[in-house]
Design a protein around this nucleic acid. Sequence first.
DNA 1: AATGAATGAGTGTTCATTCAT
DNA 2: TATGAATGAACACTCATTCAT
Lengths: 210, 210, 210, 210
Amino acid sequence: MTQDRIVSSIKDQELVAKRRQQIVQGAVRLFREKGFHRTTTREIAKECGFSIGTLYEYIRTKEDVLFLVVDSIHHQVRERLEEKIDLQNPSAENFIATLESFFRLMDDMQEEVLILYQEVKSLKRESKRYVLEKERLMVGMLERVVVTCMPDDISPQDARLLANNLFVQGQMWGFRRWILQKQFTLDEYIERQIQFLLPGLGIVHKGREL
Amino acid sequence: MTQDRIVSSIKDQELVAKRRQQIVQGAVRLFREKGFHRTTTREIAKECGFSIGTLYEYIRTKEDVLFLVVDSIHHQVRERLEEKIDLQNPSAENFIATLESFFRLMDDMQEEVLILYQEVKSLKRESKRYVLEKERLMVGMLERVVVTCMPDDISPQDARLLANNLFVQGQMWGFRRWILQKQFTLDEYIERQIQFLLPGLGIVHKGREL
Amino acid sequence: MTQDRIVSSIKDQELVAKRRQQIVQGAVRLFREKGFHRTTTREIAKECGFSIGTLYEYIRTKEDVLFLVVDSIHHQVRERLEEKIDLQNPSAENFIATLESFFRLMDDMQEEVLILYQEVKSLKRESKRYVLEKERLMVGMLERVVVTCMPDDISPQDARLLANNLFVQGQMWGFRRWILQKQFTLDEYIERQIQFLLPGLGIVHKGREL
Amino acid sequence: MTQDRIVSSIKDQELVAKRRQQIVQGAVRLFREKGFHRTTTREIAKECGFSIGTLYEYIRTKEDVLFLVVDSIHHQVRERLEEKIDLQNPSAENFIATLESFFRLMDDMQEEVLILYQEVKSLKRESKRYVLEKERLMVGMLERVVVTCMPDDISPQDARLLANNLFVQGQMWGFRRWILQKQFTLDEYIERQIQFLLPGLGIVHKGREL
DNA sequence: AATGAATGAGTGTTCATTCAT
DNA sequence: TATGAATGAACACTCATTCAT
């Protein structure tokens, strides 16, 4: 478990895992609402349904909560993304399908992604480094999809840039919802983004062709 | 002045403007370094070269400082962007040149954009609404460039989405620098992003054509 | 046992005694290092090798631990001192030998004596009274040595004062070690202190006489 | 001022001095009663007649208060002791008179001395070192008196030990008052201690001689 | 108009103690 | 008997804001 980075004074490891899950759950709800800084450790404890003392049996500092949250979100995103990725049967269709899945995932997890987005900066150097490394891995997943599925004329560098673009476009649906979600439905958004993308890759897609 | 939204007990409006400029200047430096929440009003006052009491003659709450900062950054970006935009002579070349200017601007102001990016959420509802409205205007500028310069087969909706994509790609250079600026020089970044974009718009650009 | 002053929920008196011995042992080590206030009950339990729950089966409050410790130290000091005292053969030599033993004992137990010294004040009234009573007994032992061994022209009051002086000079070797143990070896310290003392008692001692 | 070691955010140095005097005064009262650890910063603030916020304008940590207190006590003791010391006219009488003054001073300041005594250990390394250095200076004062006033056959080492003995006998009057002050009046205590001392120094004093 | 000392609610964190298992 | 998870009162310290000068 990646969470071993955070020390707990509780011995029962199963309990630790369970309580931390609760903590993440409660904290996400609060961080969404008011952000990390405006959320109190007491509020977190209350939201989780236990006392402040108990909270501190499972973490050492408030920042640990943020780390737990961020780590958990990353974990979920990667897990769910991995399910969708099929590198065995590379094809343009497969690529498009993966993209769609990715966008839908980002829609589904927009609140969490927002937190990822806005609060990572509040982590201390060491944790931040760790978290960014994880994000690199996630972008790497998209990158691999690009490299695998695309006609071979795309350079590794371009693949990486593309992956970053896609990654941010996915996040953008959430963090710019105030402008995007008023203009587009999710389906439209996905469709249009894919349409913009394909020509640059030399693909001609059904949806738009005619 | 948009800053009229913030009340000061000082009568001399020129002085108010001057002091607030100082405030923004000092605050930006600090917010870059430590973010809004970790910056103290005392520190702001000190950085500005006056006392905490004086600071509070020109603002009412700490949040006012953030608003001033965000507003000022927006203002600068828009102003500098406006200089670059030439809607009189629409053409693909013009479009590309504008994009390049935009990306360079975003590079130049990455620190400020980061603040915009990470701290707007800390504004209260009312201020946030106002700020987001301003951002809408900025995206609108890009949108207009797209609409004006592009072959007429692009729909208004697509123009808006494109503008958002571009806007975020500009920001992304700054807020994902830990990954992008290790892989690309600014010139490369601009070049590749434009290359990805053009085919989707039906343009064939020099750099890549053959 | 004097420890009956502290209530335990455990019935088996032998076990209680054994556990308390463990507690004292562990606590002394910790109190030396960090003092009573900076030592945690959890740390004490851990040092003793059992759980916090178990610790509280044998004591009722943290203060009880301190009492146990202080009482135990007193006990040891008295026991070891008693061994050395020989009231059957009073003489100046005997007196001097006893003093020397006493100083050596105080050197040997300086850490413990330091605890006695610095933490007794943290006991509550009742316990403190009890502990001070014990200390009175210890001083009484020295007093008796003085009275017994000394040429009879020393008054009871003077004997008591003298005993106090000696007692404190013994402790002082430990609690002022930062100044004394840089200047003197133990042997020197003992020798000099005794030399200062004797003339006041009308004794002429070998070491110095000529 | 030695208090420059502690940083304050208040600019007016006179005010700082005044407030810190208040702090010392209030804190001494509380430390006497309940010791350093059992005294709350809020209690200190209240005792001083200002708010917790104000207290922290003049110190940085609770330990600073202790340092201020200890330093102030040392300062007073030294000052008052210095007044009494007359190195210009060395003589046994002068020596005895100085001792008497010293004992009376220690009686007068017993509460403060007790604090010095019991709480210095709670200071952090650096402060403790500083404080012990000051104490060394104080012992040095007594030492000089001994050296100056005494018949020249006393060695420097013996002078130092003697000074330490005297110093501790002075303190002892306070910290062992539960036993000493029940047996002796101050005058008696002084008289007896001096009587014990003199023969060791080769002096024959009026009081006892015949 | 400028200053900076004063305020106190609020924050993260600790730790002695309890009690169900 | 032994365990250790749970508790929450209590603590040191911060900082936005006010207001008398």
